[in-house]
Design a protein around this nucleic acid. Structure first.
Lengths: 144, 144
DNA sequence: AGAAATTCGGATAAATTTATCCTGTTTATG
DNA sequence: CATAAACAGGATAAATTTATCCGAATTTCT
């Protein structure tokens, strides 16, 4: 569904959000440990998220990553996915045709559009805030 | 969503089905042309489909690929996807966790399950027969 | 029997994605 | 101000996916 990079990106964002709500800034190392991802690769992804204003990065000793509380409420999963995977998830034919559309559709066009719209709606309505709620009370997990 | 291999595999199966309904056996070359896919790569995929009894292959001059009419009615897209991509599409956590389940779910578990079930249902209910119908009357396409 | 058309299967190559490493820069802190 | 902790970014490597090539086997047709 998503690329590995995107999976790590989403999980990292969720972890940063979780800690930011506690007022804690977190280091790359800690993030990678807590979401069980390769450190250096995660660094690359955090750079992307930082450039795309999804997360704030602070250099130097006592630096790390954080997300402002207001942002945690606003940021939707769709923005994270878009920052890393682009619009691949939303656009593009299920069967790989370059110019598939309602006018000249592939045989599964309508069925795919329906499913993709579901996915899109889900990602556009799921905020980081909402995602952290289960993490806080221990009913959802970011590794294992 | 699917791998390139799977996209080509689905399109190839649809084209073979379409021609088989006309009583025509089709060659690799013709298939690749008609679905706009790389010939040699398509050959590999057809081998897989042949081993998995999705398509029949006939060697030798005047050989080629075909699908029996009875099979065209029975074969669902899910079988093609499974033959090529395995169960990746259905199983596996949206965020890449190895042991994500209803008991210890990732933050998006339920939402993903819902969407994946949609996809699964769609693939399990869409037969090759159904797919060829639009192709026959020219309302759907396999290339462009 | 020979030639042509065709799939099969192994080896290999190219492209992309995933992952690592290393050097530089920034910043808090003692 | 020196040091250590941390991110940034370029170069590189490993793994996977996508794609090509070629010889062998099979079958039809003349």
């Amino acid at each position: 569904m998503f690329s590995k990079a995107c999976e790590y990106g989403i999980r990292a964002s969720m972890y940063i959000a979780l800690q930011s709500l506690e007022g804690k800034r977190v280091s790359l190392k800690e993030i990678a440990e807590e979401i069980d991802s390769p450190v250096a690769f995660t660094a690359k992804i955090l750079q992307q998220l930082s450039r795309n204003k999804i997360v704030d990065s602070v250099k130097g000793s006592a630096g790390g990553f954080q997300i402002e509380k207001e942002q945690i409420k606003k940021i939707k999963l769709s923005e994270i996915v878009y920052a890393i995977d682009g619009d691949n998830v939303y656009v593009g034919c299920g069967l790989g045709l370059k110019k598939c559309n309602a006018n000249k559709p592939c045989p599964v066009h309508d069925k795919f559009v329906a499913i993709r719209d579901n996915l899109k709606n889900m990602l556009e309505s799921a905020s980081l805030q909402e995602m952290t709620e289960g993490l806080e009370v221990g009913t959802t997990y970011l590794k294992r």
